[in-house]
């Protein structure tokens, strides 16, 4: 039964996408351009917003690298803190997390 529901959920989720698809294909298309307002920004926010306005490729590369570094860095830091507290994560990590 769970299998059926899993398969049904996949199919139903896809079916629910179909009208979206048709809509997207049929409408009049004008690209929306976003300009980040840098005039009142400072520091890191200003840097990010200027990069966003100037060079999208660099911005995208930065986004991926910073997200990965922060994700890994924070995770390792928290592991360290938890092991200091005395709770061993290794024993409980018997499952997968997305």
């Amino acid at each position: 039964m769970v299998k059926k529901i899993s398969a049904a959920s996949l199919v139903a989720a896809l079916l629910s996408l179909l009208p979206a698809w048709a809509w997207a294909a049929g409408g009049a298309a004008t690209d929306l351009v976003v300009v980040a307002d840098t005039r009142a920004l400072h520091g890191f926010n200003l840097y990010l917003a200027e990069l966003y306005n100037q060079d999208m490729w660099m911005f995208a590369t930065w986004a991926v690298v910073l997200t990965s570094v922060l994700g890994v860095g924070l995770g390792l830091l928290m592991d360290l803190i938890m092991s200091h507290v005395g709770l061993d994560l290794g024993k409980s990590a018997g499952h997968v997390e997305h």
């Binding site: 980040a36 840098t38 005039r39 200027e50 100037q54 930065w62 690298v65 890994v72």
Partner: peptide, 27 residues
């Protein structure tokens, strides 16, 4: 992996540092 990411990050910092003042954009 972390080392590799570190190298990539440094390269990016150096790269973006090359953007001269003349190329600064405004809004």
């Amino acid at each position: 992996k972390i080392g590799l990411l570190g190298i990539l990050l440094t390269a990016l910092v150096l790269n973006t540092g090359c953007l001269s003042k003349d190329e600064e954009s405004h809004v």
